[in-house]
Amino acid sequence: MPDGNAEAYLAAAPDGAPAPGVLFVIDAIGLRPRIEEMADRIASWGYTVLAPNVFYRDGRAADVAPKADLREPGNREAFMGEAMQRVRGLTPELIARDLPAYLSALRSRPEVSGDEVGATGYCMGARIAIRAAGADPGVVAVGGWHGGGLVTDEPDSPHLAIATARATFAFGHASNDGSMPPEAVTALGEAIDAAGLTVANEVFPGPHGYSMSDTSMYDEESAERHFDSLRALLDSTLRG
């Protein structure tokens, strides 16, 4: 990486043959067993999945991982105060420095076939996945799940990166998420329409973080719906 070394979890397709690559952008809680479990599931569909520790500047994955069970009352809220400091420190400028290295590492793996790849992002990772598509036309599929702050009034709002993207998008916003209100969902869809790109811009029932079974925000129905939507996106773009 430009500023050090980043750990990553790699999940290969089950038959061992080279497969289309997918960049898995983690949530604010970090690289941990739940992320590995999700990456393994995506890989089982016939993909090679790379999930880097995007907080590598703050320490190794084990250093920043939660020590308490985030399914227990109050623990997630207590941990998120610390986690959000790392999120705020990961500025758009740093993300722009890091994304080429992540994508290069993914494409260089012998387990990956071809230069066209997908990206799937969770919570703040959805913002990074959008920026990946805006910066690299070889990112041809982007999934964003319970993403927060995808549309802002700032000049570097993530949704503005869509103007230079060439990807197909699928979003599963959380119905109970103040960081992505209905007007932001609408604006996101309008930006993708204006770019002439295809999008599934849906709202799933449940709270921000619904896909993370190791936290109190988990919603099984929406988590499974996200997997179905993501698989359809990847199959239709990376497998034609």
Results as ranks from 00 to 15, higher is better:
134 G>V: 12
138 G>I: 00
166 R>F: 03
149 G>V: 10
72 E>D: 07
66 P>N: 08
133 A>R: 06
148 G>H: 09
197 L>K: 04
44 S>C: 03
131 R>G: 02
112 V>F: 01
140 V>W: 05
141 A>H: 03
75 N>W: 00
90 L>E: 07
38 M>N: 13
51 A>I: 00
224 E>K: 13
88 R>Q: 15
132 A>L: 08
7 E>W: 00
89 G>S: 04
145 W>S: 11
118 G>P: 10
29 I>T: 13
74 G>I: 06
198 T>M: 07
145 W>R: 11
207 P>N: 15
145 W>T: 03
110 P>W: 02
152 T>E: 10
210 Y>P: 04
104 S>V: 00
154 E>L: 14
41 R>I: 05
111 E>F: 10
115 D>I: 03
145 W>G: 10
103 L>K: 06
62 A>T: 07
10 L>T: 02
74 G>K: 03
149 G>S: 07
183 E>F: 10
139 V>N: 07
50 L>R: 07
111 E>I: 05
124 M>T: 12
68 A>T: 15
32 R>K: 13
158 P>F: 03
14 P>Q: 08
102 Y>M: 15
232 A>L: 01
22 V>A: 02
172 G>S: 09
101 A>Y: 12
90 L>F: 11
24 F>C: 04
134 G>H: 07
66 P>G: 03
46 G>E: 13
181 P>V: 00
146 H>V: 00
11 A>R: 06
17 A>Y: 04
95 I>T: 13
174 A>D: 13
109 R>S: 06
32 R>G: 09
136 D>C: 05
174 A>P: 01
220 E>Q: 14
19 A>R: 12
103 L>Y: 00
67 K>R: 15
112 V>W: 08
33 P>L: 10
89 G>L: 01
144 G>E: 04
193 D>L: 04
226 H>T: 11
194 A>R: 15
201 N>C: 01
